[in-house]
């Protein structure tokens, strides 16, 4: 199956035939991926499958050995890295961190924080935030740029299960409100299946991709994720049913 769900709206970014090598190790081999306006594309795959590398290549932070990245002209990209560790010697509160996006109006900053569910952290030192608060603040900074394309690298790592559900709802709401395209890297199989338009399953190459329901029954996917996947497929199906 080539590219399951048909792209909705305009194409924002497209990687074609991307191969990336780190030293002698081939991290990505001939990967195709694209994200269009208004859709949530989730990248799943085991550790070391090249998810972050693919994101970095699409953001043009890393040069692929071959292949090509095309970005729609004039679009703004918001990015939340997997983690952000501020050295303890650097005094930096959340407000100042958000201002680095270029937006300094305190009301807008407070609004965006309450939007992402991190209401009372504006005056807090950034390195004192909990894992979940940090993820929300990173998202807030990305949103302040009013991105056309939002790239989130493991936005729910270190977030508890309740927080994860909430986070995926938030991401969906952002997509609905802002009509941006969202590229998500994730480990949370069951949530991915319920909160995504398109799933790309990566293991150095694209194992399978398409609608969550199709991917979750794809043999390549089941082989890659084994028991975890079969447990999740039921859950995902259940959720789809409620939606329909």
């Amino acid at each position: 199956m080539p590219d399951g769900g048909a792209p909705i709206g305009d194409l924002l970014v497209r990687g074609k035939g991307l191969s990336v090598r780190h030293g002698r190790r081939t991290v990505l081999e001939d990967v195709d991926i694209q994200v269009s306006r208004g859709e949530i594309v989730t990248l799943i795959g085991p550790n070391g499958s090249g998810k972050t590398t693919l994101v970095r290549a699409l953001l043009e932070l890393e040069k692929p050995e071959s292949g090509q990245v095309d970005r729609a002209a004039g679009i703004t990209v918001g990015y939340t890295p997997q983690q952000l560790i501020v050295d303890r010697t650097l005094p930096l509160d959340v407000r100042r961190f958000l201002e680095m996006s270029g937006e300094t109006d305190p009301e807008i900053l407070a609004d965006i924080l309450s939007d992402v569910g991190a209401r009372d952290v504006l005056r807090q030192e950034i390195r004192m935030l909990s894992g979940g608060e940090m993820k929300r603040v990173l998202l807030a900074r990305a949103l302040l740029r009013e991105p056309d394309l939002l790239v989130l690298d493991e936005p729910t790592a270190n977030v508890d299960i309740h927080g994860q559900v909430e986070f995926y709802n938030l991401i969906r709401r952002i997509r609905d409100d802002r009509q941006c395209g969202i590229l998500l890297v994730s480990h949370d199989l069951h949530l991915v299946m319920s909160a995504t338009d398109r799933v790309v399953c990566l293991n150095g190459h694209v194992c399978c991709s398409g609608l969550p329901g199709d991917v979750s029954t794809d043999p390549a996917y089941l082989e890659l994720f084994g028991d975890a996947a079969s447990a999740v497929a039921v859950y995902a199906h259940d959720h789809d049913h409620h939606h329909a």
Binding site: Y79, P81, L84, L90, M100, S101, V151
Partner: peptide, 17 residues
């Protein structure tokens, strides 16, 4: 100053911005 602080906090984030 501004750019230096930005890359001190997170290089990739600064680059994408």
């Amino acid at each position: 100053w501004k750019d230096l602080i930005a890359i001190t906090v997170h290089e990739d984030l600064a680059r994408t911005e």
